[in-house]
Design a binder for these strands. Structure first.
Lengths: 339, 339
DNA sequence: CGCGGCTTTGCAACCGGGTGCAAAGCATTT
DNA sequence: AAATGCTTTGCACCCGGTTGCAAAGCCGCG
């Protein structure tokens, strides 16, 4: 017999039930479940045993009411379209669970791009928010800040508002690393493919890239612009460039703002009948990058450093720490080679 | 000045604060925020205005305490390794939000594969659970059933326990559809690649596939087994078969249990120096399947039917409805052609 | 034996909001 | 004018746990 959902929680075992059966007061039951509370070992054992018999589990919502702490962390994502988000989400939820937190997923879709979803999270009394989406704009973060004073972490992205904790990959350095790779390969004519958002995260990357090239007297010759972070847009952007540019006037190497665009670019190269040689490098190291038919050289963000740091800051006290920028790692495959 | 997380929620505006300022009792405030409550339009407007001024938002946790309904739905996923999960997760969270529910992500990792995570969800008083993981075994579902009597939905997968709501693609029919495709292409020697779990979901598919072939006097000649649902395993499984089987004794077409395996199989074919012609079909229609370098023919599960149905059942009253099996759709690309 | 100090337990009050009922307000009916 | 019915509002109490305090129990020590 299944009850309807709204009655589902009815007739649960409460602390008073346990108390009655164990011959103690409900306050003693509460203590038995509180770490380090003043209770005699015998009483505690007794209560825990009765609780197990009755299948009692404390109601965390009721507890939150007095504790002013829910153990719920809101993960703010955009439309979940970036495959790079997958491993991050996995790692974040996993590590939060390990620390006793639960993850509430706030999906900011185009129809909920106002603050309403954040407001709802607020009503659920989340203890903190982690912003994971690549497309999320800073205004939303700002909005969250107005709503309530809880820790706000922006992960994998930069954000220049005060009181926001930023935990991200060092984009400037990444740019320089890729520049170094191109120099090593003796490319002289170099392009960059930009995505739709010129956030400071990406701009830092471009800046590092430019500075790295400059040291060798090189510069970014062409900037291609993709309309969205989608393969098709990367494809279009490069295909159009190839159409408009004479073979001997073309760039020899292209650094794309992320792997999706880079893969689109590779597809564009492959689609041409005239064999075009161009080194292509992406960013993120998504799963598809390792596929043998792309074998994309890319830049891996240090998940194993960023996620723990983000979670640490979520629970840390005191003033917000300065930005945490960790170095990523170049993943050498074959797409950067002149083929 | 940022407070530490545990104090974050302190000093929030409560209903009593609003009541005092609006010159009414706190119960009137409560009514102003309750749909269809008995309250005069003037009082309501008054309260809402004061609430807006003070930035009051009802505490949903406190409300849940009396309502016996939290509006939180637990989404049980496994290690988030199946890319097919991405669009599902997006759609589910999105639609839940639209209905005023929040999604709590329960990540069942290898270290939390016992019921502890489900138990935690229970303590948060979730209104229902949706099982999304492909690898999640039925024992876990059974475990959830013991914990609490809330709606349990198994999405995209079969499950034969009673009182479990199953919402999935019609695997038998899918199997027949693929069989039909192979027959149409005049393949006569046919193989099937199995994943690690022989759950009834997959077995139904194989059954349909076999029945479809049988009608034309064909049968599944070879069954390859992949150890995990990973590209590498699909690769190994087919590569080994090719190594061991003489060219003229080989199958002509292969139906793989999911796209990841199929892509591994395509890689295995491509990696051989001797040009091998084999039609390959996958299942799920993940993003990578559309990549021009695989162009994988596959079978799309009807997201747009399954997700709304799952959510409907989550909130429906009364006895569990019978299994919901919706037909999927063959996605014809080029990998099924003899190349 | 009496006293101080420590641990253990019970209790009232509270977290923030919802329910059911009764009283108050008001208009309509006879 | 009194009786009736409806809407609106206030109130005591509840949801399931926690906190701070005070009382009770226990110990050793002078």
């Amino acid at each position: 017999m299944r009850k309807k959902m709204s009655e589902a929680a009815a007739r649960k075992v409460t602390a008073s039930d346990v108390a009655k059966r164990a011959g103690v007061s409900k306050w003693t039951v509460s203590r038995a479940f509180t770490e380090g509370a003043s209770i005699s070992p015998e009483a505690q054992e007794r209560v825990l045993q009765v609780a197990a018999e009755l299948g009692y589990r404390p109601n965390l919502l009721a507890r939150s009411l007095t504790k002013k702490r829910t153990g719920i962390v809101g993960l703010v994502v955009d439309e979940l379209e970036n495959p790079n988000l997958f491993p991050i989400l996995n790692e974040v939820t996993n590590q939060l669970q390990r620390k006793g937190y639960m993850s509430m997923l706030l999906n900011i879709t185009s129809e909920h791009s106002d603050g309403s979803t954040l407001s709802l999270a607020d009503q659920f009394q989340v203890d903190g928010l982690i912003f994971l989406g690549t497309l999320l704009n800073d205004e939303l973060v700002q909005l969250a800040q107005d709503i309530r004073h809880i820790p706000l972490i922006v992960l994998y992205r930069n954000c220049d508002y005060p009181n926001i904790q930023v935990v991200a990959t060092d984009g400037y350095r990444a740019g320089r690393d890729i520049a170094g790779l191109f120099i090593e390969q003796r490319f002289r004519r170099i392009g960059y493919m930009l995505g739709p958002f010129s956030q400071s995260t990406q701009l830092k990357r471009l800046e590092g890239f430019r500075d790295g090239l400059k040291e060798q007297g090189l510069e970014v010759e062409v900037i291609l612009e993709a309309r969205h972070y989608q393969r098709d847009c990367g494809f279009q952007a490069l295909a159009r460039y190839l159409d408009l540019t004479a073979p001997d006037a073309r760039i020899e190497a292209l650094f794309c703002e992320n792997d999706i665009l880079a893969i689109g670019a590779l597809d564009a190269l492959r689609a041409r009948s005239d064999a075009i040689r161009m080194g292509v490098v992406g960013f993120d190291d998504i799963e598809l990058a390792a596929s043998p038919c792309y074998d994309l050289t890319t830049y891996r963000q240090p998940l194993e450093l960023l996620v723990p740091e983000a979670i640490r800051r979520l629970t840390a006290e005191g003033e917000p720490a300065p930005k945490f920028l960790a170095p990523g790692q170049l993943v050498r495959r074959s797409s950067h080679l002149r083929r």
